[in-house]
Nucleic acid binder design. Structure first.
Lengths: 156, 156
DNA sequence: AAGCTGAATTCGCAAATTGAACCCTGCTTC
DNA sequence: GAAGCAGGGTTCAATTTGCGAATTCAGCTT
C-alpha cells in the first residue's frame, strides 16, 4: 500500500521537525527568552525565527508573555516553555547526548544538564515498565507493531 | 555576540535534522530495509529519499549492503542501522512518546517498543548519574552552561 | 521632532522539495 | 531475442521554503 505510516513520530515532527525549531527550544531550555537572544544564539534568520516562534506558540510548546524590563522601557515579549514544551527535554537531551558521543567538536561538550536535586549530570535513557534500564546500544529493543513487520526487528 | 552556539544538538541535527531523515530511521528501526519499503511507509519522494539515505550512510548511521532475495533475482541493496544508528533510538522513542501524549491521533498509539528481555513497553526517561529517575515534566532539570546564562533556567 | 532599540515583517533572490517521467540492470515470458 | 517487469534509483520543471538586507512599528529618550 502507498499510504505512509501516520504515527506519533511524524506528528511530533510536524511540530518541532522544521529547521531551527529544536535549536530554538534548546535556547529556551537554557534560559533565553527574548527574540534577539534566541536569534543570536541559534543564528536563525529573523523571518524564520518569527515564523518558528509563532508555530511553536500555536502548537502549545511555548507561551508568549509581555514583560517590562527592569530599566523601564516599553513592554517586551518573552517566550517560555509550557508544560508540554518542558516535556520535550528528553528529545533535546537525547540529541545532545548522541552528538556528544559521535560528533564531538573541538570544544568539548559545552552544554550539560544536571539534576536540580543532586547536581549530577542527566542522561536520556530507555527504561522499561518493569524498571529495567536498557543499554545505550539499542540492542534490547523490539518493535511491537500491529500491522505486519516482516523482519525480526532492528537488530536482526 | 553574533556567533551562534555550536553544540551537540546542532551537530546531531546536521545529521538527522533534515525533513524525512528521522522518519526514515523510524522505518529502519521497525525492520524496513529496502528503498521501496521505506518510501511507501514514509511517503518521501524518491529523489529526497535517495539523498537522505546517502547522507545517513555517509554519516555512519546506516550501512548499505547487497543482498540476494530468496526467490532469486538480481542482488538488491538494503539499509541497516549501524551501532551509531541504533543509539539514536532514544531520540525516536522520545519523539514518539511526546506525540502519543500530546498529539494522539484517532488511531491510538500504533507503534510500541518493548524490552526484548521482559516484553514490557519502553519509555525514554531522564536519569541522573546518581540513579534518580526524573519526572516527565522537566522541572527537575537545570542547565549547567559554561558561558553565562542570565536566567535561573527553564523552570524559573 | 528626531533618534534609538528590540521585535518583528516585507522583499527579491537562492536553495531545497516535489511529483512525474525516465533510465538501468537483471530476470521472465512470449 | 524482443518485450515486459520490478527494484532502485536519477533527471527535470514547477513550486515552496529559506535566506540576508532593508523596512516598519511602538515606545522611550534627548
Amino acid at each position: 500500500m502507498t499510504t505512509p505510516r501516520v504515527c506519533s513520530v511524524a506528528r511530533t515532527l510536524d511540530v518541532v521537525g522544521e529547521r531551527w525549531s529544536l535549536l530554538v527550544l534548546r535556547e529556551v531550555f537554557l534560559g533565553m527568552r527574548r527574540f534577539e537572544q534566541i536569534r543570536e544564539h541559534t543564528g536563525a534568520p529573523r523571518a524564520v525565527l518569527a515564523q518558528r516562534l509563532r508555530h511553536l506558540v500555536d502548537a502549545g510548546v511555548l507561551e508568549q508573555r509581555d514583560y517590562r524590563p527592569e530599566g523601564g522601557g516599553r513592554t517586551r515579549q518573552e517566550y517560555r516553555l509550557t508544560e508540554a514544551g518542558r516535556e520535550l527535554q528528553p528529545v533535546i537531551t537525547a540529541l545532545m547526548q548522541w552528538g556528544d558521543r559521535h560528533l564531538a567538536g573541538s570544544e568539548g561538550p559545552p552544554l550539560r544538564v544536571v539534576h536540580h536535586g543532586c547536581g549530577a549530570p542527566v542522561q536520556a535513557r530507555l527504561v522499561c515498565a518493569e524498571g529495567h534500564l536498557l543499554g545505550d546500544d539499542g540492542r534490547e529493543l523490539r518493535p511491537a507493531v500491529p500491522d505486519g513487520v516482516p523482519g525480526p526487528g532492528p537488530s536482526g
